[in-house]
Amino acid sequence: MIQLSICIPTYNFGKFIGLTLDSLLPQVCSGVEVIVLDGGSIDDTADVVSIRQREYPMLTYHHQNFRGGIDRDIEKVVSMAQGQYCWLFSADDIMLPGAVNKILEAIKSNYDVYICEHVLCNLKMDPIRKHPPFNKMSGSRLFNLGEASQRKEYFRSARTSEAFFSFLSGPIFKKTIWDSASIPESFRDTCWIVAGHLLSMVSKGLTVNYLGETLLHKRGENDSFSDRGMVNRYRIAIEAFHHVGNSLFGKFSEEAFHIRRVLQLDIPVRYLMLAKLRATENQDREGIKVLNRLVIMHYADPSLSNWMKYALYKTAFPFTIKMYLDFKKLWRKT
């Protein structure tokens, strides 16, 4: 019987996936499988994986000759899993020693979802800082999100969108819970299919065990959602995640409000001002229009803080933004 399926969707990550597999395969024991779904890579991903398959028979590799998109590839690799629980894992992250055993021990309690922490790193995997998904929460905590008071505490305590399952490698979930989720087709074009599946089960009484332990290093500066530019990246983060939250809980619900709140923390106004500068420098008028619409959406909830941030974005001229960035670089050097 397979207890845990480590599921890795990938596309053209041949230069990263070898290190990822090397970090987790030596930890794999009886009752654990590793599945790599290659969404049509044209690099050396297949060769990198096949080398590891010779030593680790529990590693399986599936290559499809088309790009299904991240949402559909995630659903497909989970559908291949035979484990009671699935741990979706990014093809460029590094699993820390002992992580698999800790998860195997944790899932004996049979809750629906387990959330681990990670250390944020740069592209070279030099550690930068811890990145906890909750505020002022130390040690393990259990929440039944079907119970109103516990759901309020969970949503109010969220520090980043990772509390709402935005980070691929963060949650470990029961496969039957995933399979039971009924989601609209529109979620499969958001890049947030994991959040869609798991958040859709909140009303059913989803039990979430926050482990409070760091089990992996996350590679930064390698955001595959940025391949079509910064403005489109923020469209995915803001517009698409709003769509998931508003569809599941209602636009004026407290749950959707807290999803919007943490997105503002994930994407501060200085990021949006930088995007405005870049779009202006590239004479991307359409990009500026899209960005302006996203900023209105981002700060739509009425508050003095939101009004001030929107006003700062709106009134900042590109040359003043550039002066600020140049000064910041100079200050860092000194």
Rank of each mutant, 00 (worst) to 15 (best):
T60C: 10
Q53L: 08
Q82W: 10
Y111K: 08
V100A: 12
E33P: 06
I103M: 08
D43W: 12
Q27W: 07
C29R: 10
C29A: 10
E117L: 02
R52P: 10
G31Y: 03
D38A: 13
I94Y: 14
I8K: 07
E105V: 11
V100H: 00
G40Q: 12
G18E: 14
L25Y: 03
H62L: 06
D47N: 07
M95G: 12
Y61T: 09
F89C: 14
Y56P: 07
I94A: 10
N110D: 15
Y61K: 06
Q53P: 13
D22N: 09
Y85C: 09
L24K: 10
I2L: 11
P97E: 15
T20P: 08
V49S: 00
N65L: 08
G31K: 02
L104F: 01
Q82I: 07
I115Y: 01
F16D: 15
I35F: 12
P9Y: 09
T60G: 07
S109E: 15
G68V: 06
L24D: 06
G69R: 01
V49P: 06
Y114P: 09
A106V: 03
A106D: 10
H62Y: 11
T20Y: 03
Y61A: 05
P57K: 04
D38P: 13
E117K: 02
V36F: 10
N65K: 14
V77T: 05
T45Y: 01
I74Y: 04
L19T: 04
K76P: 08
G69T: 07
G69M: 05
I35R: 06
M58R: 04
D73F: 09
G83K: 10
L4A: 07
L104H: 02
L21Q: 00
S109K: 08
S5N: 05
G83W: 06
Y111H: 15
D73M: 05
V48K: 07
D112I: 02
S50Y: 01
S30I: 04
D22I: 02
G69K: 08
Y61W: 09
Q3C: 12
D92H: 00
N65M: 12
G69P: 09
S50I: 13
F13E: 10
I8V: 15
V77F: 13
D92C: 02
H62W: 06
I74T: 10
L24C: 11
G68D: 10
L88G: 00
M95S: 12
L4R: 03
I2Q: 05
S109G: 13
Y56A: 01
N110R: 07
R52N: 03
S5V: 13
E55K: 12
D47S: 01
S23W: 04
A106K: 00
S90G: 15
Y56K: 01
E105F: 14
